[in-house]
């Protein structure tokens, strides 16, 4: 793959919600490139389109118009199955509310992306899961259910799940929003380590201190990127 080609390329990307004859432009024509290995923080007031942008980047939502090229793949031209495959291989998600499946153990939660990927036998999957859990310091809690863990531990388990498939892009939506400050710090340190390891990281946050840790800070307002150092401002 061409290293100079951006991992993410958005061209005039729009996401419009239509309800009762009212159009809401959640994303109002974005142009954005994110290179491999970048650490990008997205800031902005509530309702400015941060989470929508993250959903579109994660192929969890489809743009109303425009182009989105992920790792050289024009995502608007592929079907839902292909998008799922791309999501599984290239993207890891970290959510504010962790989104672990409560009926499954930590180990099973972390193993899930590898099961969807297929092609790995049970032993290889177990090994990858153990490594991911060790990396986030959760290997001793592998057989616990999410309900038996603290918020910080749940978020670390969620990070293990996000990175187990070695994705090229980690998307984090307010990863510390439901955590106390100590746990928040630990999670942010972990994300920093992952970035240092070469992972591309895109994080939505309200916290300016955490945003300051990113190499690039984007500020959004009314569905547009108001401030992007790479683009030289709004």
């Amino acid at each position: 793959m061409n290293q100079k080609q951006p991992l993410i390329a958005l061209r005039d990307l729009r996401r419009i919600y239509t309800t009762d004859q009212l159009e809401t432009h959640a994303l109002a024509g974005l142009d954005l490139d994110i290179a491999r290995g970048e650490y990008v923080a997205i800031e902005g007031p509530s309702g400015c389109g941060k989470s929508t942008l993250l959903s579109v980047l994660g192929l969890l939502d489809e743009p109303s118009s425009g182009d989105y090229i992920l790792a050289g793949v024009p995502t608007t031209e592929i079907d839902a199955e292909e998008q799922a495959r791309l999501r599984n291989r290239e993207i890891g998600f970290i959510f504010q509310s962790f989104n672990l499946i409560p009926e499954m153990s930590v180990r099973e939660n972390v193993e899930l992306p590898l099961i969807y990927r297929g092609g790995l036998d049970g032993r290889a999957r177990r090994q990858s899961v153990e490594e991911a859990l060790k990396r986030v310091g959760m290997d001793h809690r592998a057989d616990h259910r999410p309900g038996q863990l603290s918020g910080g531990q749940q978020q670390r388990a969620a990070i293990a799940r996000a990175l187990v498939g070695q994705p090229s892009l980690l998307l984090a939506d307010e990863p510390t929003g439901n955590l106390d400050s100590e746990s928040g710090e630990q999670v942010m340190d972990l994300l920093g380590e992952l970035h240092d390891g070469g992972t591309t990281l895109v994080m939505v946050t309200h916290n300016p201190d955490y945003a300051a840790r990113a190499g690039r800070r984007l500020r959004m307002h009314d569905g547009r990127i108001e401030q992007d150092p790479e683009a030289g401002g709004a």
């Binding site: 994660g58 969890l60 839902a80 199955e81 998008q83 799922a84 495959r85 999501r87 599984n88 291989r89 998600f93 989104n99 672990l100 499946i101 899930l112 992306p113 969807y116 990927r117 799940r161 498939g165």
Partner: peptide, 12 residues
């Protein structure tokens, strides 16, 4: 939705 985020496609 979580499963889909982790790579489960419509068929799955």
């Amino acid at each position: 939705a979580i499963r889909m985020a982790l790579g489960a496609g419509p068929r799955s």
